[in-house]
C-alpha cells in the first residue's frame, strides 16, 4: 500500500506510514462495489491530467507574477523550482495582500507575499483525497508530486472537467 503523501511502499494494513507517519487508516476502508461510485473515489489524481504548473523563482517581482497570472489565464503560480516548491501565489493572495498598495509593492519579490509551504499530494492519491484536502484547507489549487518531485497542479476546474468526462449526459463536454 503506497502512502498518498510520500508514496512510500508500506506493509498492507499499516495504520500509519513508516516513512512520514501519515495516517493510513482511511485507505483500508471497504471499497465501493459499483463502477460509477468507484470512479471518483478510487481513480488516482492522474485521471485529472494535472497541468504543468507555471513556476517562478522566489525573487520574481510582484508585477511580473501579476502579469503572468493575467496573460496566461491562470489562477496561481508556484514559487521555487521543480525540485523544491517553496510557495504558492494565487489570485486570492493578490486580493488579500496587495489591494491598495500595489504600486509600492510591484517591484518587491513575490516571496514576501506568497503562501509558504503549500500542501502537496502524490499523483497516486485518490481523487476523493484531493477533494477532502481542498475543502478542508479551502484552497483551489493543489500541487501534485511524483516520487517527491513536482509533476503538475490541479484545480477545482479540473474536477469539474473530470465530472463532465464521467457524466457527459449531465455536464456536456466543451465544444
Amino acid at each position: 500500500m503506497n502512502c498518498p503523501f510520500c508514496n512510500y511502499d508500506n506493509m498492507s494494513g499499516a495504520a500509519t506510514c513508516d516513512d512520514c507517519s501519515m495516517d493510513l487508516t482511511d485507505l483500508d476502508l471497504p471499497r465501493p462495489s459499483s463502477a460509477i461510485e468507484a470512479s471518483i473515489m478510487e481513480s488516482s489524481l492522474a485521471a485529472l491530467h494535472p497541468k504543468s504548473p507555471v513556476i517562478v523563482p522566489p525573487e520574481a517581482t510582484v508585477a511580473e507574477v501579476i502579469r503572468i497570472l493575467c496573460e496566461q489565464h491562470i489562477g496561481c503560480v508556484l514559487v521555487g523550482s521543480k525540485d523544491k516548491v517553496v510557495g504558492i501565489f494565487s489570485e486570492r493572495d493578490a486580493l488579500n495582500r496587495l489591494t491598495d498598495r500595489y504600486s509600492e509593492r510591484a517591484s518587491l519579490p513575490i516571496s514576501q507575499f506568497m503562501t509558504a509551504h503549500p500542501e502537496q499530494l502524490d499523483l497516486g492519491a485518490p481523487i476523493a483525497f484531493a477533494l477532502d484536502r481542498m475543502s478542508i484547507g479551502s484552497f483551489r489549487h493543489l500541487p501534485i508530486t511524483r516520487y517527491g518531485r513536482l509533476e503538475g497542479i490541479i484545480s477545482t476546474r479540473d474536477i469539474l472537467r473530470f465530472l463532465s468526462e464521467s457524466y457527459p449526459d449531465l455536464i456536456p463536454p466543451k465544444s
Binding site: 471518483i40 476523493a128 477533494l131 481542498m134 475543502s135 479551502s138 483551489r140 477545482t156 476546474r157 474536477i159
Partner: peptide, 15 residues
Amino acid sequence: VGQVAYFLADLHPTM
C-alpha cells in the same frame, strides 16, 4: 465549484 467539491468530499465517507 469548490462548494460542490466540498459536498462531494463530505459525501464520500457516507458512501
